[in-house]
């Protein structure tokens, strides 16, 4: 049965979702502030009211625009709508997830967060891939599978929505750290320790915000990080390499070619952990390096000298 799918945002992921949905025979409207060229049968719209008739809405905008866009959507959506976002960011110092923002600004309640190793190109072209959908609503999973799934895409489900959102946001930051490590020539074993302990570190913080540890060890966390290390060419990798080459943060962000949410997230996460008295050796050390407070060598030495405990 054909769905009426709305896509908000005409970035790489928004376009990929629109293409995948259209390929599966659904009626697709893509809402963006500026007019864009889109292949048929995707309908382009600059009027948010066109989202009103969609039953499933994908939100594909960066976290920094989420509040404003959610406010606009709040004027047209109601209890009949289901909404899924693909953002890798969090909002503000209080680390609000995007579903929390949508809940605050709209009356939409059937919400989900799509994350994991899925990249825009694979989705657009229908290459085999997998993703994880965090939602409390099993019928929403069915709709998303119907809209995007099929033989090419395995969409797993979890009820730990906040876990998916936090894992996805923190993996973005860990990817920058690992790309930095690769570029400065760290051994694969060192990178493996950095990745594994990094996941443990962010999952510890995530649990204080209501996430489950297991979600960080699944597709939304470790799975996504493996895809990044395997070299899926996401902007976080370019940012990490540029930083390792000594480019300062603002220029490195420019070299990444796309907005990297992980950097904003990292600062707020470190502050949150500090308030709760949690240790964040990897995040804090990396922040010190990017801010020029610590040299590369001192950073590695500081991490290696830490007391080793149980896993």
């Amino acid at each position: 049965m054909s769905l009426r799918v709305g896509v908000v945002g005409a970035g790489g992921f928004g376009r990929a979702i629109a293409l995948a949905s259209a390929r599966h025979g659904h009626e697709v409207v893509l809402w963006s502030r500026r007019e864009r060229d889109l292949p048929d049968p995707i309908r382009m719209s600059t009027d948010v009211a066109d989202i009103r008739d969609c039953e499933l809405v994908f939100l594909a905008v960066p976290a920094r625009h989420a509040v404003e866009v959610a406010e606009q959507l709040g004027e047209v959506v109601d209890g009949r709508h289901s909404m899924v976002h693909v953002s890798r960011g969090l909002v503000g110092a209080e680390l609000k997830t995007i579903t929390q923002v949508i809940r605050d600004k709209t009356v939409c309640r059937r919400l989900g967060a799509l994350a994991g190793p899925l990249v825009a190109d694979a989705l657009a072209e229908g290459r085999p891939s997998g993703a994880i959908l965090g939602t409390g609503f099993p019928d929403l999973t069915g709709m998303v599978r119907e809209a995007l799934g099929g033989a090419g895409l395995r969409i797993y489900e979890t009820r730990d929505v906040v876990g998916v959102e936090l894992a996805s946001a923190t993996v973005g930051f860990l990817t920058v750290v690992l790309a930095y490590g690769q570029e400065v020539g760290l051994d694969p074993s060192t990178l493996a320790v950095l990745a594994t302990r990094g996941i443990v570190e962010v999952s510890r913080i995530g649990q204080t915000l209501g996430a489950k540890e297991s979600t960080f060890m699944g597709l939304a966390g470790l799975g996504d990080l493996i895809a990044a290390v395997a070299g899926d060419q996401r902007p976080e990798l370019r940012l990490g390499r540029a930083l390792a080459q000594g480019v300062d943060l603002s220029n490195a962000v420019g070299e990444a070619g796309a907005y990297v949410e992980g950097i904003d997230v990292a600062g707020h996460l470190i502050e949150h952990a500090r308030r709760l008295g949690l240790e964040t050796p990897i995040s804090s050390t990396f922040a010190a390096v990017t801010e020029g407070r610590l040299s590369q060598d001192d950073a590695i030495q500081a991490l290696m000298e830490r007391r080793v405990g149980k896993e």
Binding site: G74, E75, D78, G79, R80, K105
Partner: peptide, 18 residues
Amino acid sequence: QSLTPTGRAIDPGGYVEQ
């Protein structure tokens, strides 16, 4: 009447529709 954050009235019945 159920209201949105900006005060628009909505039908709560929509939440249980398929």
